[in-house]
């Protein structure tokens, strides 16, 4: 039986950090050093003038572990803010995938038809292949990729999740 303490939960954690050398290594080193999971990670500068970058991490663990991750991240010197978006309230979490499908004939038309249904764009087309660009929730991308698998899926490139809270409040 699983007690509430042992229940695994998923969390999207967003960090605002000083954009300096080594900061990403500090963050991911903390995860590997303390045995926390990283399911996806995105990082990019968001405030050039103030030298700040945002890191979004999708992780999972017991509630105690998720709270520890937040506390440990907050302890890093170049970290300004840490928010557990999953806990803080409604948020938008989206990622982008580039999906390469190599097929001909019926499979090719079927792939194109499904892509339209998912509002995926064909950003590269040859006689044998498509590269589809698809943005959305992780689950949407997962099901698109699953559908493409029997239709000649050969390669996937995903960005990982970028997330932000809904409504007027900021990190």
């Amino acid at each position: 039986m699983t007690t509430p303490e042992e229940t695994q939960v998923s969390a999207v954690i967003s960090l605002l950090v000083e954009n300096e050398s080594g900061v990403l290594a500090r963050v991911i080193g903390l995860f590997s050093g303390r045995g926390y999971n990283i399911e996806s990670l995105t990082v990019a500068p968001v405030e050039d003038l103030r030298h700040r970058s945002r890191i979004n991490i999708v992780t999972s663990g017991t509630q105690m572990v998720i709270d520890q991750i937040k506390a440990q991240l907050s302890r890093l010197v170049p970290v300004y803010r840490v928010v557990n978006l999953t806990e803080a309230g409604p948020h938008v979490a989206r990622e982008m995938a580039l999906v390469k499908v190599v097929s001909t004939g019926e499979h090719r038309t079927e792939a194109l038809r499904i892509a339209e249904a998912f509002r995926a764009r064909a950003v590269d087309t040859t006689a044998q292949s498509f590269v589809f660009e698809l943005t959305g929730a992780t689950e949407k991308l997962d099901s698109f990729i699953d559908l493409m698998r029997p239709l000649g899926l050969v390669e996937v490139s995903r960005t990982g999740v970028a997330a932000i809270a809904r409504g007027p409040q900021t990190i």
Partner: peptide
């Protein structure tokens, strides 16, 4: 003084 010590091992 270190918030990460709170609830780390013992609630």
């Amino acid at each position: 003084i270190d918030p990460s010590q709170i609830n780390k091992i013992i609630r």
